[in-house]
Design a protein around this nucleic acid. Sequence first.
RNA 1: GGGCGGUUAGCUCAGCUGGAUAGAGCGUUGGCCUCCGGAGCCAAAGGCCGCUGGUUCGAAUCCAGUACCGCCUACCA
Length: 565
Amino acid sequence: MKDYREAIARIVGETLDVSGLDISSLIKNEEGGERGDLALPCFVFAKQMKRNPKELAEELAEKFAGEERFANVEAKGPFLNFTFDAAWLSKQVLPEAVSRGEKWGWSETPAEKTVTIDFSSPNIAKPLAFHHLRSTSIGNALANLYEALGWRTVRINHLGDWGTQFGKLAVAFLKWGDERKLEQERIKHLLELYVRYTREAEDDPSLDAEARSLFLKMEQGDAEALALWKRFRDESLNEFNRLYGRLGIRFDTWDGESYYNDKLDDVVEEVERKVGTEISEGATIVRLDDLDIQPVLLKKSDGATLYATRDIAAAIDRFERFSYDLSLYVIGAQQSLHCKQFFAVLEKMGFDWAERLVHVPFGWLKGMSTRKGQVVFLDDVLDEVMELSRKAIAEKNPDLPDADKVAEQVGVGAVIFGDLVNWRMNDVTFDWGRILNFQGETGVYVQYTHARCRSVLRKAGQPDLNGFDPSRLDLPEEKNLLKLIGAFPETIEESATKYDPSKLARMLIETAKAFGRLWNMKEKGYVFLEEDPDLRLARLALVTATANTLSSGLAILGLPAPEEM
RNA sequence: GGGCGGUUAGCUCAGCUGGAUAGAGCGUUGGCCUCCGGAGCCAAAGGCCGCUGGUUCGAAUCCAGUACCGCCUACCA
């Protein structure tokens, strides 16, 4: 469908003397009313040719007279407005959108490229909090987007599973740990122990000494100490996997900080050899003055490594294992400097693939002050939202089979979509009211529209759409929907290359709205289950294509699309 | 002090590779169930697009400056 841009550019190029201009990028989408579906402002041509833009627009309009893809091309002042021929548009988008089913919009050919996505990456021994959702949902959506483009994806959960805090936790566990509580409360018990440790260590400095020595034992491979650490890690992973399962998210590797721990000395040595390091105030640093970036610390003055060191090691290791064409880091915007720094070190080390590393930053989650310990657990948010959707189902669709499962799908969908629908750099304020809102531009709305589509198709007895006549769809409202369905593959591509799932989320909302308008035209006598068999088949094809767009798009964003709700 | 990000309707946000009267959702007010699912649809009210300059035929969009908010700014991640 996209080739209309090239077609317009070609005809304009043949008509006017406008060499050197990228004509197709001047074409703007319009709403489909008075201004048609596309608009081409002629000011730029006028300037180059030193002529009146109105005249040029009129001149051009005539040249498009015979084009089958446009029902109308007319000059409105200095603008040239194009209106798609409905039958042409329908023929371009519907057959494919129908036949590709749930994979509509996905690339049919492998891209032969690999992308790694480092996302979520929580610290172990603490429950996942609501703020972890940002990296998790954005990263997952990006992975799905690239998969849809045919890329091979490697989903990496770079666990924070090493460091002195595990010495502290071990001390706390040995002193106050309760096997039965651990059994029942799992990871929350670990958090409780850690909180207690922090409190008691304020009055009793000997605890810190104990913790240091216990962590040292872990580093030296002491079996008992490591067994404790492994327990914390296993316990955490169980818990994380349960939650990721709820969210429908999986990872390909869980290699975190502990995995890289014994590789760091070699990496520091390699940096030293290739780039050169310096000792400053006892710490090992790399200067990046030439790039106007502050120095990176590779080792503290006590010899311990830092997270820059680990990220350098991880980038090298991942390239050796996956030879990625692109490596995304879905990490908060606070860490922009950190990313800039370790990317720069890799570049200076002479790795030509360093330019493939991309930081995908996102804004801050406000309104959850950790200093008061007021973290909102992700689990609790999901429970709350699921409860609400369960009530909604009981009220609106009490006979729904599998109501619990659907309630979970709707609840989880509401939370994920709410996180993805806005530009990721915006800071967001935690607000129960917004999370629990199922009206308007929400994931629930998109899921609901999809369920309505499926409902119509069920009522139609899952029709065989073979041989439907696309030219029977010619209403403006149908055309608006067709345009959106047709733009779906491009939207996927744009969302992926801009690392911006919100583009796709918003396009799905537009699609749902366009469908909703058609649905409510039944007062005017418009129904999908039309009596005329040919018209009915064409409309059902449109419903199918809408359902495919919504379910495929929702799946890419990481939300389920229930058949009924 | 320096760096990065942000500032659009009461609230939450689209629009930002410059184009024709600045859009949506929530909330408010008022409509729409003989008819495919009302978690829906339609409509109204609501805006010096932070401020000041500049570039341009044309600026919410680009440039400079400025105010306010947030984050980062060497041994946490």
